[in-house]
Write a protein that binds this DNA or RNA. Structure first.
Length: 530
RNA sequence: GCCCCCGUAGCUCAACGGGACAGAGCAGCGGAUUUCUAAUCCGCAGGUUGCAGGUUCGAGUCCUGCCGGGGGCGCCA
Protein backbone atom coordinates (compact mmCIF):
# COMPACT_ATOMS: atom_id res chain seq x y z
CA UNK A 1 0.00 0.00 0.00
CA UNK A 2 1.70 3.15 -1.21
CA UNK A 3 -0.42 5.84 0.33
CA UNK A 4 0.70 6.22 3.91
CA UNK A 5 -2.55 7.71 5.11
CA UNK A 6 -4.65 5.14 3.32
CA UNK A 7 -2.49 2.42 4.85
CA UNK A 8 -2.89 3.73 8.39
CA UNK A 9 -6.62 4.20 8.00
CA UNK A 10 -6.94 0.55 7.09
CA UNK A 11 -4.74 -0.58 9.96
CA UNK A 12 -6.75 1.39 12.47
CA UNK A 13 -10.08 0.33 11.01
CA UNK A 14 -9.01 -3.29 11.31
CA UNK A 15 -7.88 -2.81 14.88
CA UNK A 16 -11.21 -1.26 15.84
CA UNK A 17 -13.07 -4.00 14.04
CA UNK A 18 -11.24 -6.54 16.17
CA UNK A 19 -12.73 -4.68 19.13
CA UNK A 20 -16.17 -4.90 17.60
CA UNK A 21 -16.35 -1.27 16.52
CA UNK A 22 -17.15 -0.41 12.91
CA UNK A 23 -16.30 3.16 12.06
CA UNK A 24 -15.07 4.93 8.93
CA UNK A 25 -11.79 6.15 10.32
CA UNK A 26 -10.44 9.10 8.39
CA UNK A 27 -7.10 10.65 9.11
CA UNK A 28 -6.42 14.32 8.67
CA UNK A 29 -3.57 16.61 9.50
CA UNK A 30 -3.61 18.13 12.98
CA UNK A 31 -3.81 21.92 13.07
CA UNK A 32 -0.30 22.24 14.43
CA UNK A 33 2.52 19.89 13.44
CA UNK A 34 3.78 19.50 17.00
CA UNK A 35 0.53 17.77 17.87
CA UNK A 36 1.46 14.81 15.74
CA UNK A 37 1.57 13.43 12.21
CA UNK A 38 -2.09 12.59 11.82
CA UNK A 39 -5.34 13.11 13.67
CA UNK A 40 -8.70 11.41 13.64
CA UNK A 41 -12.16 12.52 14.68
CA UNK A 42 -13.42 8.92 14.86
CA UNK A 43 -14.41 9.35 18.51
CA UNK A 44 -16.89 12.07 17.57
CA UNK A 45 -18.45 9.82 14.99
CA UNK A 46 -18.69 6.96 17.45
CA UNK A 47 -20.13 9.20 20.15
CA UNK A 48 -23.34 9.71 18.23
CA UNK A 49 -24.24 6.04 17.85
CA UNK A 50 -22.80 4.81 21.13
CA UNK A 51 -24.30 7.73 23.04
CA UNK A 52 -21.13 8.23 25.02
CA UNK A 53 -18.97 11.34 25.45
CA UNK A 54 -16.35 11.79 22.71
CA UNK A 55 -13.54 12.59 25.16
CA UNK A 56 -13.94 9.26 26.91
CA UNK A 57 -14.13 7.37 23.63
CA UNK A 58 -11.05 9.14 22.32
CA UNK A 59 -9.04 7.98 25.34
CA UNK A 60 -10.24 4.44 24.84
CA UNK A 61 -9.51 4.57 21.13
CA UNK A 62 -6.03 5.88 21.74
CA UNK A 63 -5.35 2.99 24.10
CA UNK A 64 -6.52 0.45 21.55
CA UNK A 65 -4.31 1.62 18.73
CA UNK A 66 -1.18 2.90 20.42
CA UNK A 67 0.58 -0.44 20.21
CA UNK A 68 0.28 -0.64 16.43
CA UNK A 69 3.82 -1.00 15.12
CA UNK A 70 3.58 2.18 13.04
CA UNK A 71 2.46 4.32 15.93
CA UNK A 72 4.81 5.84 18.46
CA UNK A 73 2.15 7.72 20.37
CA UNK A 74 -1.60 8.11 20.32
CA UNK A 75 -2.85 11.04 22.38
CA UNK A 76 -6.45 11.82 23.14
CA UNK A 77 -7.07 15.55 23.01
CA UNK A 78 -10.63 16.68 23.43
CA UNK A 79 -12.43 14.22 21.22
CA UNK A 80 -9.55 13.94 18.80
CA UNK A 81 -6.86 11.33 18.74
CA UNK A 82 -3.49 12.60 17.58
CA UNK A 83 -1.00 10.14 16.18
CA UNK A 84 2.74 10.38 16.14
CA UNK A 85 4.41 7.86 13.90
CA UNK A 86 7.46 5.78 14.65
CA UNK A 87 10.55 7.15 12.89
CA UNK A 88 11.60 3.65 11.95
CA UNK A 89 8.24 3.10 10.34
CA UNK A 90 8.44 6.31 8.32
CA UNK A 91 11.90 5.44 7.09
CA UNK A 92 10.89 1.92 6.17
CA UNK A 93 7.92 3.33 4.23
CA UNK A 94 10.14 5.80 2.40
CA UNK A 95 12.52 3.08 1.33
CA UNK A 96 9.68 0.87 0.22
CA UNK A 97 7.61 3.46 -1.63
CA UNK A 98 10.24 5.44 -3.49
CA UNK A 99 12.66 2.74 -4.65
CA UNK A 100 11.82 2.90 -8.34
CA UNK A 101 12.82 5.68 -10.69
CA UNK A 102 10.70 7.07 -12.23
CA UNK A 103 8.00 6.49 -9.65
CA UNK A 104 5.61 3.85 -10.93
CA UNK A 105 1.85 4.32 -11.17
CA UNK A 106 -0.37 2.43 -8.75
CA UNK A 107 -1.76 -0.89 -9.93
CA UNK A 108 -5.20 -0.83 -11.48
CA UNK A 109 -7.67 -0.72 -8.64
CA UNK A 110 -11.03 -0.53 -10.38
CA UNK A 111 -13.08 -2.04 -13.13
CA UNK A 112 -14.13 1.42 -14.17
CA UNK A 113 -13.03 2.77 -17.53
CA UNK A 114 -13.09 6.53 -17.77
CA UNK A 115 -13.22 8.81 -20.77
CA UNK A 116 -12.68 12.52 -20.23
CA UNK A 117 -14.00 14.73 -22.99
CA UNK A 118 -12.73 18.28 -23.01
CA UNK A 119 -12.16 21.40 -25.09
CA UNK A 120 -14.29 20.03 -27.98
CA UNK A 121 -14.31 23.52 -29.45
CA UNK A 122 -16.34 24.32 -32.52
CA UNK A 123 -14.15 24.01 -35.62
CA UNK A 124 -15.08 27.52 -36.64
CA UNK A 125 -12.25 29.50 -35.09
CA UNK A 126 -9.16 29.52 -32.88
CA UNK A 127 -9.11 28.21 -29.31
CA UNK A 128 -9.64 30.69 -26.49
CA UNK A 129 -8.26 30.96 -22.98
CA UNK A 130 -11.07 28.97 -21.37
CA UNK A 131 -10.16 26.15 -23.73
CA UNK A 132 -6.64 26.39 -22.32
CA UNK A 133 -8.05 25.98 -18.84
CA UNK A 134 -10.20 23.01 -19.77
CA UNK A 135 -7.28 21.43 -21.61
CA UNK A 136 -4.98 21.72 -18.60
CA UNK A 137 -7.61 20.32 -16.26
CA UNK A 138 -8.82 17.49 -18.50
CA UNK A 139 -5.35 16.38 -19.47
CA UNK A 140 -4.05 16.47 -15.92
CA UNK A 141 -7.07 14.63 -14.63
CA UNK A 142 -6.39 11.79 -17.06
CA UNK A 143 -2.72 11.71 -16.14
CA UNK A 144 -3.57 11.59 -12.44
CA UNK A 145 -6.23 8.93 -12.85
CA UNK A 146 -3.89 6.71 -14.79
CA UNK A 147 -1.22 7.18 -12.17
CA UNK A 148 -3.75 6.34 -9.48
CA UNK A 149 -4.67 3.09 -11.20
CA UNK A 150 -7.83 4.19 -12.96
CA UNK A 151 -7.84 3.55 -16.73
CA UNK A 152 -8.73 6.82 -18.44
CA UNK A 153 -8.61 8.32 -21.94
CA UNK A 154 -8.88 11.79 -23.44
CA UNK A 155 -11.37 12.58 -26.13
CA UNK A 156 -12.11 15.53 -28.39
CA UNK A 157 -15.45 15.96 -30.08
CA UNK A 158 -15.78 17.96 -33.26
CA UNK A 159 -19.09 19.58 -34.16
CA UNK A 160 -18.35 19.52 -37.86
CA UNK A 161 -21.98 19.42 -38.93
CA UNK A 162 -25.04 21.54 -38.52
CA UNK A 163 -25.90 25.19 -38.60
CA UNK A 164 -22.59 26.64 -37.51
CA UNK A 165 -20.86 24.98 -40.45
CA UNK A 166 -23.34 26.59 -42.83
CA UNK A 167 -22.61 29.87 -41.08
CA UNK A 168 -18.90 29.31 -41.56
CA UNK A 169 -19.42 28.58 -45.25
CA UNK A 170 -21.42 31.78 -45.62
CA UNK A 171 -18.85 33.82 -43.72
CA UNK A 172 -16.01 32.66 -45.94
CA UNK A 173 -18.04 33.29 -49.07
CA UNK A 174 -18.76 36.80 -47.84
CA UNK A 175 -15.10 37.47 -47.12
CA UNK A 176 -14.16 36.20 -50.57
CA UNK A 177 -16.65 38.59 -52.11
CA UNK A 178 -18.94 35.80 -53.30
CA UNK A 179 -21.82 36.93 -51.20
CA UNK A 180 -23.49 40.23 -50.36
CA UNK A 181 -23.87 39.95 -46.60
CA UNK A 182 -22.32 38.23 -43.62
CA UNK A 183 -24.75 35.56 -42.33
CA UNK A 184 -26.60 36.58 -39.21
CA UNK A 185 -24.70 34.12 -37.01
CA UNK A 186 -21.56 34.42 -39.14
CA UNK A 187 -17.94 34.67 -38.08
CA UNK A 188 -16.07 37.91 -38.53
CA UNK A 189 -12.53 37.24 -37.33
CA UNK A 190 -9.54 37.98 -39.54
CA UNK A 191 -8.84 34.25 -39.68
CA UNK A 192 -11.99 33.96 -41.81
CA UNK A 193 -10.56 36.48 -44.26
CA UNK A 194 -7.27 34.55 -44.30
CA UNK A 195 -9.13 31.34 -45.03
CA UNK A 196 -11.17 32.99 -47.74
CA UNK A 197 -8.05 34.27 -49.44
CA UNK A 198 -6.27 30.91 -49.23
CA UNK A 199 -9.20 28.82 -50.42
CA UNK A 200 -9.85 31.18 -53.27
CA UNK A 201 -6.22 31.25 -54.36
CA UNK A 202 -5.94 27.48 -54.24
CA UNK A 203 -9.00 27.13 -56.43
CA UNK A 204 -10.87 24.98 -53.97
CA UNK A 205 -14.44 24.59 -55.27
CA UNK A 206 -16.73 26.93 -53.35
CA UNK A 207 -18.98 24.06 -52.30
CA UNK A 208 -15.98 22.50 -50.50
CA UNK A 209 -15.01 25.60 -48.57
CA UNK A 210 -16.62 24.84 -45.25
CA UNK A 211 -15.35 21.29 -45.26
CA UNK A 212 -11.83 22.38 -46.10
CA UNK A 213 -11.94 25.23 -43.58
CA UNK A 214 -13.05 22.86 -40.83
CA UNK A 215 -10.17 20.55 -41.67
CA UNK A 216 -7.65 23.38 -41.42
CA UNK A 217 -9.11 24.96 -38.30
CA UNK A 218 -9.30 21.62 -36.50
CA UNK A 219 -5.71 20.84 -37.44
CA UNK A 220 -4.72 24.24 -36.08
CA UNK A 221 -6.55 23.62 -32.81
CA UNK A 222 -4.98 20.21 -32.30
CA UNK A 223 -1.57 21.65 -33.12
CA UNK A 224 -1.92 24.32 -30.45
CA UNK A 225 -3.00 21.63 -28.00
CA UNK A 226 0.00 19.47 -28.90
CA UNK A 227 2.26 22.39 -28.14
CA UNK A 228 0.43 22.60 -24.82
CA UNK A 229 1.39 18.93 -24.30
CA UNK A 230 -2.15 17.68 -24.71
CA UNK A 231 -2.95 14.85 -27.09
CA UNK A 232 -6.14 12.86 -27.42
CA UNK A 233 -6.67 9.14 -27.64
CA UNK A 234 -9.61 9.83 -29.90
CA UNK A 235 -11.01 12.67 -31.97
CA UNK A 236 -14.63 11.99 -32.81
CA UNK A 237 -16.50 13.90 -35.48
CA UNK A 238 -20.17 14.68 -35.35
CA UNK A 239 -20.35 14.01 -39.09
CA UNK A 240 -19.17 10.47 -38.39
CA UNK A 241 -21.75 10.03 -35.62
CA UNK A 242 -24.47 11.13 -38.02
CA UNK A 243 -23.53 8.35 -40.45
CA UNK A 244 -23.20 5.74 -37.69
CA UNK A 245 -25.87 3.38 -36.36
CA UNK A 246 -26.09 5.33 -33.10
CA UNK A 247 -28.77 7.84 -34.12
CA UNK A 248 -31.05 4.95 -35.02
CA UNK A 249 -30.29 3.26 -31.69
CA UNK A 250 -31.15 6.44 -29.84
CA UNK A 251 -34.51 6.61 -31.58
CA UNK A 252 -35.32 3.04 -30.72
CA UNK A 253 -34.29 3.14 -27.11
CA UNK A 254 -35.89 6.49 -26.44
CA UNK A 255 -39.18 5.47 -28.07
CA UNK A 256 -41.04 4.89 -24.79
CA UNK A 257 -40.30 8.45 -23.73
CA UNK A 258 -41.15 10.26 -26.95
CA UNK A 259 -44.27 12.21 -27.89
CA UNK A 260 -45.29 14.62 -30.58
CA UNK A 261 -46.33 18.19 -30.04
CA UNK A 262 -46.82 20.89 -32.67
CA UNK A 263 -45.10 18.74 -35.24
CA UNK A 264 -41.95 18.24 -33.18
CA UNK A 265 -40.80 15.13 -31.33
CA UNK A 266 -40.20 15.66 -27.63
CA UNK A 267 -38.19 13.60 -25.14
CA UNK A 268 -39.88 13.31 -21.76
CA UNK A 269 -36.84 14.33 -19.72
CA UNK A 270 -39.05 15.35 -16.82
CA UNK A 271 -39.93 11.68 -16.33
CA UNK A 272 -36.63 11.21 -14.50
CA UNK A 273 -36.97 12.84 -11.09
CA UNK A 274 -33.33 12.11 -10.24
CA UNK A 275 -32.21 14.67 -12.75
CA UNK A 276 -34.79 17.41 -12.27
CA UNK A 277 -35.18 18.83 -15.74
CA UNK A 278 -37.64 21.76 -15.88
CA UNK A 279 -39.34 20.74 -19.07
CA UNK A 280 -39.37 18.18 -21.83
CA UNK A 281 -36.89 18.68 -24.65
CA UNK A 282 -37.23 18.73 -28.40
CA UNK A 283 -35.40 15.89 -30.04
CA UNK A 284 -36.62 16.29 -33.63
CA UNK A 285 -37.71 19.70 -34.85
CA UNK A 286 -40.98 20.14 -36.71
CA UNK A 287 -38.95 20.53 -39.91
CA UNK A 288 -37.58 17.02 -39.41
CA UNK A 289 -34.07 18.18 -38.36
CA UNK A 290 -32.79 16.55 -35.19
CA UNK A 291 -31.51 18.92 -32.49
CA UNK A 292 -27.97 19.10 -31.17
CA UNK A 293 -29.24 17.24 -28.10
CA UNK A 294 -30.15 14.27 -30.26
CA UNK A 295 -26.70 13.99 -31.87
CA UNK A 296 -25.05 14.48 -28.53
CA UNK A 297 -26.98 11.57 -27.07
CA UNK A 298 -25.89 9.43 -30.02
CA UNK A 299 -22.29 10.47 -29.38
CA UNK A 300 -22.47 9.63 -25.68
CA UNK A 301 -24.06 6.30 -26.47
CA UNK A 302 -21.07 5.66 -28.69
CA UNK A 303 -18.78 6.39 -25.75
CA UNK A 304 -20.59 3.90 -23.54
CA UNK A 305 -20.61 1.40 -26.37
CA UNK A 306 -16.83 1.44 -26.48
CA UNK A 307 -16.77 0.12 -22.93
CA UNK A 308 -16.42 3.33 -20.98
CA UNK A 309 -18.28 3.10 -17.69
CA UNK A 310 -17.71 6.68 -16.60
CA UNK A 311 -18.16 9.63 -18.90
CA UNK A 312 -16.57 12.83 -17.64
CA UNK A 313 -17.34 15.94 -19.67
CA UNK A 314 -15.82 19.36 -19.16
CA UNK A 315 -18.28 22.05 -20.23
CA UNK A 316 -18.48 25.80 -20.10
CA UNK A 317 -20.79 27.56 -17.65
CA UNK A 318 -23.26 28.35 -20.42
CA UNK A 319 -24.07 24.63 -20.61
CA UNK A 320 -25.18 24.29 -16.97
CA UNK A 321 -28.82 23.96 -17.93
CA UNK A 322 -27.99 21.19 -20.36
CA UNK A 323 -26.92 18.70 -17.68
CA UNK A 324 -30.33 17.42 -16.52
CA UNK A 325 -31.64 16.58 -20.00
CA UNK A 326 -28.39 14.86 -20.89
CA UNK A 327 -28.43 12.69 -17.78
CA UNK A 328 -32.09 11.92 -18.25
CA UNK A 329 -31.37 10.97 -21.84
CA UNK A 330 -28.55 8.65 -20.89
CA UNK A 331 -30.76 7.09 -18.25
CA UNK A 332 -33.40 6.40 -20.88
CA UNK A 333 -30.76 4.97 -23.19
CA UNK A 334 -29.85 2.43 -20.55
CA UNK A 335 -26.39 3.88 -20.08
CA UNK A 336 -27.32 5.36 -16.72
CA UNK A 337 -27.56 9.06 -16.03
CA UNK A 338 -25.20 8.83 -13.10
CA UNK A 339 -22.43 7.54 -15.34
CA UNK A 340 -22.17 11.02 -16.80
CA UNK A 341 -20.21 13.44 -14.69
CA UNK A 342 -20.10 17.02 -15.84
CA UNK A 343 -17.45 19.40 -14.63
CA UNK A 344 -18.31 23.01 -15.31
CA UNK A 345 -15.15 24.94 -16.10
CA UNK A 346 -15.72 28.52 -15.10
CA UNK A 347 -14.49 31.51 -16.99
CA UNK A 348 -11.00 32.96 -17.09
CA UNK A 349 -10.40 36.68 -16.62
CA UNK A 350 -7.12 38.02 -17.94
CA UNK A 351 -5.24 40.80 -16.20
CA UNK A 352 -2.15 42.67 -17.31
CA UNK A 353 -0.47 45.27 -15.09
CA UNK A 354 -3.52 45.05 -12.87
CA UNK A 355 -5.82 45.94 -15.74
CA UNK A 356 -8.51 43.68 -17.11
CA UNK A 357 -7.63 42.51 -20.61
CA UNK A 358 -10.55 42.65 -22.99
CA UNK A 359 -10.76 39.24 -24.49
CA UNK A 360 -13.06 39.92 -27.35
CA UNK A 361 -12.48 42.97 -29.43
CA UNK A 362 -14.74 44.01 -32.20
CA UNK A 363 -14.72 42.22 -35.52
CA UNK A 364 -14.33 38.84 -33.81
CA UNK A 365 -10.71 39.34 -32.81
CA UNK A 366 -9.87 37.96 -29.42
CA UNK A 367 -7.05 36.99 -27.14
CA UNK A 368 -6.58 33.38 -28.19
CA UNK A 369 -4.97 30.39 -26.52
CA UNK A 370 -1.99 30.75 -28.86
CA UNK A 371 -1.44 34.29 -27.64
CA UNK A 372 -1.39 33.00 -24.10
CA UNK A 373 1.20 30.35 -24.90
CA UNK A 374 3.31 32.89 -26.68
CA UNK A 375 3.08 35.48 -23.94
CA UNK A 376 3.59 33.32 -20.83
CA UNK A 377 4.65 29.88 -22.09
CA UNK A 378 3.28 26.40 -21.57
CA UNK A 379 4.59 25.75 -18.06
CA UNK A 380 3.24 28.90 -16.46
CA UNK A 381 -0.06 28.64 -18.31
CA UNK A 382 -0.68 25.05 -17.26
CA UNK A 383 0.37 25.71 -13.69
CA UNK A 384 -1.81 28.79 -13.34
CA UNK A 385 -4.79 27.12 -14.95
CA UNK A 386 -4.53 24.19 -12.56
CA UNK A 387 -4.18 26.23 -9.42
CA UNK A 388 -7.86 27.01 -8.87
CA UNK A 389 -10.89 24.82 -8.30
CA UNK A 390 -12.50 24.37 -11.72
CA UNK A 391 -15.94 25.57 -10.67
CA UNK A 392 -14.70 28.98 -9.60
CA UNK A 393 -13.83 31.82 -11.94
CA UNK A 394 -10.10 32.24 -12.47
CA UNK A 395 -8.24 35.52 -12.52
CA UNK A 396 -5.16 35.01 -14.66
CA UNK A 397 -2.43 37.53 -14.02
CA UNK A 398 -0.39 37.69 -17.21
CA UNK A 399 2.20 39.97 -15.67
CA UNK A 400 2.80 37.61 -12.77
CA UNK A 401 2.82 34.50 -14.95
CA UNK A 402 5.48 36.12 -17.12
CA UNK A 403 7.64 37.26 -14.23
CA UNK A 404 10.86 35.32 -14.00
CA UNK A 405 11.19 35.78 -10.29
CA UNK A 406 10.41 34.86 -6.77
CA UNK A 407 6.81 35.89 -6.70
CA UNK A 408 5.94 33.46 -9.47
CA UNK A 409 4.83 30.12 -7.96
CA UNK A 410 5.77 28.16 -11.07
CA UNK A 411 9.40 29.05 -10.71
CA UNK A 412 9.33 28.47 -6.99
CA UNK A 413 8.37 24.87 -7.67
CA UNK A 414 10.62 24.39 -10.68
CA UNK A 415 13.51 25.95 -8.80
CA UNK A 416 13.30 23.32 -6.08
CA UNK A 417 13.70 20.67 -8.77
CA UNK A 418 16.61 22.42 -10.44
CA UNK A 419 18.17 22.85 -7.03
CA UNK A 420 17.91 19.20 -6.08
CA UNK A 421 19.33 18.08 -9.42
CA UNK A 422 22.24 20.41 -8.91
CA UNK A 423 22.78 19.15 -5.40
CA UNK A 424 22.88 15.55 -6.58
CA UNK A 425 25.27 16.51 -9.34
CA UNK A 426 27.57 18.29 -6.93
CA UNK A 427 27.53 15.26 -4.64
CA UNK A 428 28.37 12.97 -7.53
CA UNK A 429 31.36 15.13 -8.41
CA UNK A 430 32.54 14.77 -4.84
CA UNK A 431 32.17 11.02 -5.13
CA UNK A 432 28.94 10.62 -3.16
CA UNK A 433 25.91 8.67 -4.32
CA UNK A 434 22.58 8.19 -2.49
CA UNK A 435 22.50 5.05 -0.35
CA UNK A 436 18.95 4.12 0.58
CA UNK A 437 19.89 1.29 2.90
CA UNK A 438 21.83 3.67 5.15
CA UNK A 439 18.68 5.63 5.87
CA UNK A 440 17.62 4.17 9.19
CA UNK A 441 16.31 7.09 11.17
CA UNK A 442 16.37 10.86 11.15
CA UNK A 443 19.29 12.93 12.35
CA UNK A 444 17.59 16.29 11.92
CA UNK A 445 13.94 17.35 12.39
CA UNK A 446 13.85 18.82 8.88
CA UNK A 447 14.59 15.36 7.50
CA UNK A 448 11.56 13.96 9.20
CA UNK A 449 9.34 16.80 8.00
CA UNK A 450 10.50 16.27 4.44
CA UNK A 451 10.07 12.52 4.61
CA UNK A 452 6.56 12.86 5.98
CA UNK A 453 5.63 15.27 3.21
CA UNK A 454 7.00 12.90 0.56
CA UNK A 455 4.86 10.09 1.92
CA UNK A 456 1.74 12.13 1.22
CA UNK A 457 2.32 11.91 -2.51
CA UNK A 458 0.50 8.69 -3.27
CA UNK A 459 -2.34 9.64 -0.92
CA UNK A 460 -2.72 12.89 -2.78
CA UNK A 461 -2.72 11.25 -6.18
CA UNK A 462 -5.55 8.97 -5.11
CA UNK A 463 -7.50 11.81 -3.54
CA UNK A 464 -7.21 13.93 -6.65
CA UNK A 465 -8.22 11.04 -8.89
CA UNK A 466 -11.27 10.29 -6.77
CA UNK A 467 -12.37 13.85 -6.08
CA UNK A 468 -11.39 15.25 -9.50
CA UNK A 469 -10.00 18.25 -7.57
CA UNK A 470 -7.00 18.81 -9.75
CA UNK A 471 -6.04 22.08 -8.06
CA UNK A 472 -4.78 20.18 -5.04
CA UNK A 473 -1.82 18.95 -7.06
CA UNK A 474 -0.10 22.34 -7.57
CA UNK A 475 -0.87 23.21 -3.97
CA UNK A 476 0.86 20.07 -2.78
CA UNK A 477 3.88 20.71 -4.97
CA UNK A 478 4.11 24.24 -3.63
CA UNK A 479 4.00 22.84 -0.11
CA UNK A 480 6.53 20.17 -0.91
CA UNK A 481 8.87 22.72 -2.48
CA UNK A 482 8.66 24.88 0.59
CA UNK A 483 9.50 21.91 2.78
CA UNK A 484 12.48 21.08 0.61
CA UNK A 485 13.78 24.65 0.57
CA UNK A 486 13.54 24.69 4.36
CA UNK A 487 15.35 21.38 4.57
CA UNK A 488 18.04 22.68 2.25
CA UNK A 489 18.47 25.78 4.37
CA UNK A 490 18.77 23.87 7.61
CA UNK A 491 20.55 20.68 6.69
CA UNK A 492 23.95 20.49 5.13
CA UNK A 493 23.87 17.44 2.89
CA UNK A 494 27.30 17.07 1.30
CA UNK A 495 30.03 17.00 3.93
CA UNK A 496 33.25 15.16 4.69
CA UNK A 497 31.25 12.52 6.53
CA UNK A 498 30.60 10.12 3.72
CA UNK A 499 28.07 7.89 5.42
CA UNK A 500 25.91 10.78 6.66
CA UNK A 501 26.16 12.43 3.26
CA UNK A 502 24.99 9.34 1.44
CA UNK A 503 22.05 8.66 3.72
CA UNK A 504 20.92 12.27 3.39
CA UNK A 505 21.34 12.02 -0.36
CA UNK A 506 18.87 9.13 -0.27
CA UNK A 507 16.21 11.44 1.09
CA UNK A 508 17.18 14.13 -1.41
CA UNK A 509 16.92 11.64 -4.26
CA UNK A 510 13.44 10.63 -3.09
CA UNK A 511 12.39 14.26 -3.17
CA UNK A 512 13.69 14.54 -6.72
CA UNK A 513 11.61 11.57 -7.81
CA UNK A 514 8.43 12.85 -6.22
CA UNK A 515 8.87 16.36 -7.58
CA UNK A 516 9.55 15.01 -11.05
CA UNK A 517 6.49 12.77 -10.91
CA UNK A 518 4.31 15.60 -9.63
CA UNK A 519 5.37 18.02 -12.35
CA UNK A 520 4.85 15.31 -14.97
CA UNK A 521 1.28 14.86 -13.78
CA UNK A 522 0.67 18.55 -14.38
CA UNK A 523 2.43 18.50 -17.73
CA UNK A 524 4.92 21.04 -16.46
CA UNK A 525 8.61 20.73 -17.25
CA UNK A 526 11.05 19.74 -14.49
CA UNK A 527 14.15 21.80 -15.35
CA UNK A 528 17.64 20.47 -14.53
CA UNK A 529 19.01 23.95 -14.04
CA UNK A 530 17.68 27.48 -13.84
C1' G B 1 -39.71 35.25 -12.20
C1' C B 2 -37.09 30.37 -11.94
C1' C B 3 -32.30 27.36 -12.04
C1' C B 4 -26.72 26.82 -11.51
C1' C B 5 -21.72 28.69 -9.82
C1' C B 6 -19.06 32.18 -6.81
C1' G B 7 -18.42 35.75 -2.32
C1' U B 8 -12.57 33.93 3.09
C1' A B 9 -6.44 39.09 5.00
C1' G B 10 -5.06 45.15 0.74
C1' C B 11 -4.58 41.37 -3.85
C1' U B 12 -4.78 36.07 -5.70
C1' C B 13 -6.39 31.80 -3.32
C1' A B 14 -6.28 27.08 0.44
C1' A B 15 -8.98 24.78 4.27
C1' C B 16 -9.17 17.08 2.41
C1' G B 17 -17.27 13.51 4.80
C1' G B 18 -19.27 19.42 9.64
C1' G B 19 -13.88 19.20 13.59
C1' A B 20 -9.16 21.83 17.32
C1' C B 21 -6.70 28.73 17.71
C1' A B 22 -9.51 29.80 9.53
C1' G B 23 -3.91 28.73 6.55
C1' A B 24 -0.39 30.06 2.17
C1' G B 25 1.68 33.19 -1.58
C1' C B 26 2.04 38.18 -3.30
C1' A B 27 2.19 43.22 -1.82
C1' G B 28 4.22 45.98 3.20
C1' C B 29 7.98 46.21 7.23
C1' G B 30 12.56 43.97 9.52
C1' G B 31 16.52 40.27 9.33
C1' A B 32 19.97 35.98 7.14
C1' U B 33 24.56 35.25 1.85
C1' U B 34 32.36 35.32 0.45
C1' U B 35 26.06 28.98 -0.52
C1' C B 36 25.65 21.71 -1.67
C1' U B 37 22.04 27.65 -6.96
C1' A B 38 19.35 34.01 -2.47
C1' A B 39 14.47 32.25 -8.37
C1' U B 40 16.12 30.61 -1.14
C1' C B 41 15.27 31.02 4.22
C1' C B 42 13.60 33.40 9.15
C1' G B 43 10.55 37.03 11.71
C1' C B 44 6.56 41.01 12.18
C1' A B 45 1.94 42.86 10.77
C1' G B 46 -2.67 41.78 8.46
C1' G B 47 -9.75 38.30 9.57
C1' U B 48 -16.96 39.80 12.47
C1' U B 49 -15.18 33.82 6.30
C1' G B 50 -21.00 39.35 2.15
C1' C B 51 -25.48 40.08 5.87
C1' A B 52 -29.43 37.92 9.16
C1' G B 53 -31.48 33.67 11.21
C1' G B 54 -31.52 28.17 11.92
C1' U B 55 -29.66 22.85 12.61
C1' U B 56 -25.42 20.70 15.64
C1' C B 57 -21.34 18.87 21.17
C1' G B 58 -18.99 21.74 17.00
C1' A B 59 -20.53 25.73 10.84
C1' G B 60 -16.16 29.04 6.01
C1' U B 61 -18.44 24.12 5.04
C1' C B 62 -25.38 22.00 5.91
C1' C B 63 -30.69 24.60 5.73
C1' U B 64 -33.85 29.30 4.97
C1' G B 65 -34.05 34.42 3.58
C1' C B 66 -31.53 38.71 1.82
C1' C B 67 -27.30 41.53 -0.69
C1' G B 68 -23.43 41.52 -4.51
C1' G B 69 -20.79 39.27 -9.07
C1' G B 70 -21.09 35.72 -13.21
C1' G B 71 -23.84 32.18 -16.31
C1' G B 72 -28.33 29.96 -18.01
C1' C B 73 -33.76 29.60 -18.80
C1' G B 74 -34.44 28.41 -27.88
C1' C B 75 -37.69 23.65 -32.46
C1' C B 76 -29.07 27.64 -31.31
C1' A B 77 -24.72 24.85 -30.45
Amino acid sequence: MKGLRHFLEQEIRQRLKDRGVEVEVRLSLPPRPEMGDYATNAAFLMARTLRRPPGELARELAKWIQDLPAIARADASGGFVNLTLEDAFLVQQLKEVFTEDPLPPLPTRTRERVVVEFVSANPTGPLNVVNARAAAVGDTLVRVMRFAGIPADREYYVNDAGGQIRALQGSIEYRAGRRETLPEDGYGGTYVADLARALDRENIPVAQWAKEAVRRILEGQLEVLRRYRVTFEAVVRESWIRESPYPQLVKERLAPYLYEKEGAVYFRSTAFPDFRDDKDRVLIRSNGEPTYFFWDLAYHLYKADRGYTRLIDLWGPDHQGYIPRMKAGLEALGVGGHQLEVMIVQQVNLFREGQRVRMSKRKGEFYAMEDLLEEVGVDATRFFMLQRAVNTPLDFDLTLARTLSQENPVYYVQYSHARVVNLLKYAREKGHAPEFSWLEGFTHPAERTLGRMLLRFYDLVQDVADSREVHRLPHYLLDLSRTFHQFYQNVRVVTEASRETRRRLALVEMFRRVMKAGLDLMGVEAPERM
